[in-house]
C-alpha cells in the first residue's frame, strides 16, 4: 500500500508539471491553431532565469521562500515578455500564411532559443540552491518532500487562477471569442493581435513556473531540458483534447501517472511506450481527445 501511495504522489507531481506546460500548448492551439514547438524552450528559459534571480535574491539576504516567490514572479514575467517577442517576430508576420509555414517557423524558433540558451548560459548544468527548500516528512513508509507539496499547491493555484481568468474576466471572454471566430470577434471590436499576444504570454508564464519548480525539485536545469517534457506535454494536450484547458490539465495528470505507474509496476524501460499507447488508444476511440469537442472545418 505504501508503495502504491508513494508512486501515486510521484505521479501526481510529475503530472502537475506536465499539465502546466501542456496549458501553453493548448491555449495557443485553441486561439490560432498553431502547435508552438518553441513552447518547451520557454520552460527551459524559465528555469534558467529563475536560478539567476534566486542566486541574486538570496545574495541580498532574503528569506528562502521569499526568494522562491519573487523569482517565480519575475521569471514568469520575463518569459511572458519573451513569448510576446517570439510571437511578434516569428508568428505574427505569418498570420495569413499557410499553417505549414508557421509550424516551420515554430520549429526554427525552438532551435534558435535552445542554442541561444546554450551560447549564453553554457553547456554545463546549472545547479539550483536546493538547500533552500530541502526536507519533507514521512507518513508511514511514504516520503513526501516539501517541494512536492509546493508543486502541487502552486499548480492548483495557477490552474484555478487561469480558469477564473478565462471564464470570468473580460480578457478571458475576448480570448474565447477570438478562439471561436477571429473575424467576427474583430468586427465587434476585439483587437485579436493583442489577445493572441496575451495568450502567448500567459502560456509562457505557466511554462516558466513549471521550469522553476522543476529546477527546485530535481536540483538543476540545462539547456536541453525543454525538449522531452515539451513532447510529453504536447502529448498531454492532445490527449486531453487540444484547445481545451481542462483537457490539458487532465491529460498532463494522466501522462504523468501512466509514466510513473508503468515504470513502477511494469517496466521502466517501456514507460514512455505505455504513455504513448494510452495516447493512441484514446485518440482511436475519441479522435478529438478526452475533452475535445467536435469542430467542423469551417471554424478554422
Amino acid at each position: 500500500m505504501d508503495y502504491f501511495l508513494q508512486q501515486l504522489i510521484n505521479g501526481v507531481t510529475l503530472g502537475g508539471i506536465y499539465a502546466l506546460i501542456a496549458l501553453g500548448y493548448t491555449m495557443v492551439y485553441g486561439i490560432i491553431q498553431l502547435i508552438n514547438f518553441a513552447h518547451g524552450e520557454f520552460f527551459a528559459a524559465g528555469g534558467y532565469i529563475g536560478v539567476i534571480f534566486i542566486t541574486w535574491l538570496s545574495a541580498q539576504g532574503l528569506h528562502p521562500y521569499v526568494c522562491l516567490g519573487l523569482s517565480l514572479l519575475l521569471s514568469m514575467l520575463y518569459c511572458a515578455l519573451l513569448a510576446m517577442a517570439v510571437e511578434k517576430v516569428a508568428y505574427k508576420p505569418l498570420r495569413y500564411a499557410s499553417r505549414l509555414s508557421v509550424l516551420l517557423s515554430a520549429l526554427g524558433m525552438s532551435i534558435f532559443l535552445q542554442n541561444g540558451l546554450m551560447l549564453t548560459q553554457g553547456v554545463y548544468d546549472k545547479p539550483y540552491p536546493t538547500d533552500l527548500t530541502q526536507g519533507g516528512f514521512a507518513m508511514g513508509g511514504v516520503v513526501v518532500s516539501y517541494m512536492q507539496i509546493i508543486i502541487l499547491v502552486l499548480t492548483t493555484v495557477l490552474l484555478i487562477g487561469l480558469n477564473a481568468m478565462v471564464f470570468k474576466t473580460r480578457i478571458g471572454k475576448a480570448m474565447r471569442a477570438t478562439a471561436q471566430d477571429k473575424v467576427m470577434s474583430g468586427l465587434v471590436g476585439i483587437n485579436s493581435s493583442t489577445v493572441i499576444s496575451f495568450t502567448f504570454a500567459i502560456g509562457a508564464a505557466l511554462a516558466a513556473a513549471a521550469g522553476i519548480m522543476v529546477g527546485f525539485y530535481y536540483g538543476s536545469v540545462n539547456y536541453t531540458m525543454g525538449f522531452v517534457p515539451g513532447i510529453k506535454a504536447f502529448a498531454a494536450a492532445v490527449l486531453g483534447g487540444i484547445g481545451n484547458i481542462t483537457g490539458a490539465m487532465v491529460g498532463g495528470l494522466i501522462i504523468g501517472m501512466v509514466e510513473i505507474f508503468a515504470a513502477g509496476y511494469l517496466s521502466s524501460e517501456y514507460k514512455d511506450v505505455f504513455a504513448f499507447i494510452i495516447l493512441i488508444a484514446v485518440l482511436y476511440f475519441m479522435p478529438t481527445g478526452i475533452m475535445g469537442e467536435n469542430v467542423d472545418d469551417t471554424r478554422v
Binding site: Y218, V228, G264
Partner: peptide, 12 residues
C-alpha cells in the same frame, strides 16, 4: 536518456 524524474524506479 533525457529523463529527469527517477522517482518510480527509486521507489522500486
Amino acid at each position: 536518456q533525457g529523463d529527469k524524474d527517477f522517482s518510480a524506479v527509486l521507489t522500486k
